[in-house]
Design a protein around this nucleic acid. Structure first.
Lengths: 223, 223
DNA sequence: ACCTGAACACCGTTCAAGT
DNA sequence: ACCTGAACACCGTTCAAGT
């Protein structure tokens, strides 16, 4: 029979040394997500992991949305921007785009957060944009095209991150196949290359297309 | 003084004629979203709008997720696929992509739903894919490229719908501008064309690039 | 300043009882 | 079969009290 004595409770009142911090909260949230997923991330479970009362969290964040912002900025450090200092533009973009998509495939609930969050509150996110911008400039891109190009790439990456979480059978028409013959045929036409994940094929194809199209646009820009 | 007599309550027990249906629920949910937004859509508010008890909804849907699926499929009818029967491929794609983005800009909470939902449960969604596929085939696209191209376009559209909901000032670096000089410069370089919304510029540029790049890919396909 | 503990308003969902 | 009404477990958040 195991002991049912709970963990030693702290009594009320300010503890001698601070227990919580935004960093500790971020770390605990990340671990929680890795083990229990985003549904497992509640203010309650977060407090439990940190061995504090849920209300204590509100001394360090204003809301659960704040926690997601902290997470978002931290996760951004996992995106690989190393190519922009050394590699040719195209190679650097590919490394960046694939790693960005892979990271956010594991964190799709953060996408609605990051997509509308002012960058001024997210230093790591700004650091990524700075590195990417430098890569574009190194490749002599026309200045006014850089930000729109980054936004377009990022939008494609975020949408693709969602797609990468879809089940492989998402396009099976099932019962209704007879009513949608052309689409059904198009779906079965790609079953041959079953060696790669469908989401990866589409992402690779879209990324190739974007890179080609953006380069064409840059080349025709009046300089 | 206005009457405080509440609306006439129905007594318990099966009513003589059915009050609810999936269609009625979908319609009420849509109206609710238009007036109160997605935070205003709860099983409780939905029931109130339909003048039933919240528990009654569960005779027609299994969960709130089910309601979102119904919504998603209905919203899909607003996407303009009319070009695919008559217009040149490129023109039809532009009409489709812009309308698809505009529709889901007003319904971003549905994006995580549609992105992973098997199409077999969504007839209107399948109808859209069928129309798009026919457009690709009319333009003599290689069959195995069609579905990946659609997925790539859709991913870009979904990501861009999120971006379109962002405040125009999302890229202002604020206090931290000094630490990120190149990105800050790139942001101010596009302030000149302040006549168009930033999200529209980026979407237009990305769509042009995707169209060009996808066409190039189709042209080199072994046929 | 920063913790606890007890509230609060709300959420989605279940289920027995009613016709 | 399809509604009501009363539950239930959980959610994020607030706030007085304590050191």
């Amino acid at each position: 029979m195991v002991s049912v004595t709970g963990p030693a409770r702290r009594s009320a009142g300010r503890p001698l040394n601070r227990i919580l911090s935004q960093e500790a909260i971020t770390r605990a949230a990340l671990t929680l997500i890795e083990t229990r997923g985003y549904e497992g991330l509640t203010m309650s479970s977060l407090a439990r992991a940190l061995k504090v009362a849920p209300s204590s969290l509100y001394n360090h964040v204003e809301s659960k949305g704040d926690v997601l912002i902290l997470l978002q900025d931290h996760v951004m450090t996992q995106v690989d921007v190393s190519g922009f200092e050394t590699e040719p533009w195209e190679q650097a973009i590919r490394r960046f785009a694939w790693s960005y998509r892979d990271v956010f495939t594991r964190h799709t609930p953060l996408i609605p957060v990051i997509a509308v969050l002012p960058v001024s509150g997210a230093p790591q996110t700004l650091a990524v944009y700075e590195a990417v911008t430098r890569g574009f400039e190194r490749a002599a891109w026309p200045e006014p095209l850089i930000v729109p190009a980054i936004i377009a790439l990022e939008s494609f990456i975020f949408g693709s991150a969602f797609d990468a979480t879809a089940p492989e059978t998402i396009f099976e028409s099932g019962q209704l196949a007879g009513h949608y013959p052309r689409f059904t045929a198009a779906v079965s036409a790609l079953k041959d290359n079953a060696d790669r994940r469908q989401a990866d094929v589409a992402f690779g194809m879209g990324l190739d297309a974007l890179i080609l199209g953006l380069q064409a646009r840059a080349a025709e820009h009046p300089s």
